[in-house]
Design a protein around this nucleic acid. Structure first.
Lengths: 144, 144
DNA sequence: TAGACTATTTATAAAGATTACAATTTGAGA
DNA sequence: TCTCAAATTGTAATCTTTATAAATAGTCTA
C-alpha cells in the first residue's frame, strides 16, 4: 500500500522530468509511511541521521516540487509551520485547537460549493479547502 | 451599518472586561469600514498617521484579543501574512491564487459536515473553515 | 563507460512575520 | 482624585521560509 503510493509518486515525478535523488526519495518514503501531517522540520529531523549533511533547504525545495506536482498538500495551521500531507484519496481535516493534532475524515466532495462560488464571484475555480476545528478526545479528557 | 457593527463590537468587548483605548477603537473602526481583509501591517500603516507612536505589537495584541472574542477571523493564506476579517454574517472566502485577492461569498452553512466530522473522529467540534481557490476575473484577463 | 549538461544539494545569509519582555502609560472603578 | 491592573511602547529575539552561489550528482548521449 505505502509502496504503491511511493512508486506512483516516483513515476509521476520522473515522467515530468524531476530527477530522483536519495534525499528526495527518503522524503517521499517518510511522507508515505507516516500519516502524521509532518512539518518541514519534522521531516528534516527524521532524516538527518540518514543524511547528516542534508540541508533544511533541501526539504523545503522538495516539498515545493511535490506540491507543484500535486503529490503533497500544504496546510497552514495558524501561525505555526506548514504541515504536509501526502495526497491519496480525497479527504478533509479535523484539527484539534488544543494540541494541533490533525485527523483525516471522509466526506463527499463539495462540488456544489465550487460551482456556486464560481457563479457568484466570476472566479475560475481550481480547488477548495475545508477544515473543521475542535477538541480531540484526548484533550477533552484532560480538560475535565 | 458600519456603526452598528462597531458599536456591537465595542459592547461585546466591554462586557467581557476589555478596556477601550483609542488605538483599539481605531483598529475596530478600520476593520468595520474596510472590507479588504487587511494584514496586521496594512492596519498599522493605515493608522500610523493618526497614532505616530503606535507600535506594531499593539496591532498584533489587539487582533489577538479580537480573535479570542470572536470579533475577527484570522486567515492564513500560504506563507504570507495573516489576514483579518471582521465577522459579520456567516460567509466563505474565494481566494485568487495569482494576486491574493479575497472575495466573500455566501453559501448555506455546512452544518452537516461538522456533524459527520464529529461522529467520525470523536472530536468536539467548534467551527470550520472553507476556502475556494481559483483565478479572479482580472487575472484571467491578464493571462490571455 | 565517459563526458557533458543541468538539476539538485549544500551552507549560509537574509527576509519577513510574529512574539516576548520590561518599562511606561492609561482606562475605569472606588 | 486615587489606585491598580490592563494596555501600550520600543526593541530584541524567535521562528519559518527563501535567496544565493558554489559544489555535487543524475541522466542522457555518444
Amino acid at each position: 500500500m505505502a509502496n504503491e503510493m511511493l512508486d506512483h509518486a516516483v513515476r509521476t515525478l520522473r515522467d515530468s522530468g524531476v530527477r530522483m535523488t536519495p534525499q528526495r526519495h527518503a522524503i517521499l518514503e517518510y511522507l508515505t509511511a507516516e500519516h502524521t501531517h509532518p512539518t518541514a522540520d519534522d521531516i528534516y529531523r527524521a532524516l538527518e541521521h540518514r543524511f547528516p549533511n542534508m540541508s533544511v533547504a533541501t526539504v523545503y525545495n522538495n516539498l515545493r516540487v511535490f506540491r507543484e506536482k500535486g503529490i503533497v498538500e500544504e496546510m497552514n495551521y495558524g501561525d505555526a509551520s506548514s504541515r504536509f500531507d501526502f495526497v491519496t484519496t480525497r479527504h478533509y481535516h479535523m484539527i484539534c485547537e488544543e494540541c494541533g493534532k490533525i485527523v483525516d475524515f471522509n466526506y463527499p466532495v463539495l462540488d456544489d460549493v465550487e460551482a456556486v462560488a464560481a457563479h457568484l464571484t466570476g472566479f475560475k475555480v481550481n480547488r477548495h479547502r475545508l477544515e473543521v476545528y475542535g477538541t480531540c478526545p484526548d484533550c477533552q479528557k484532560n480538560v475535565q
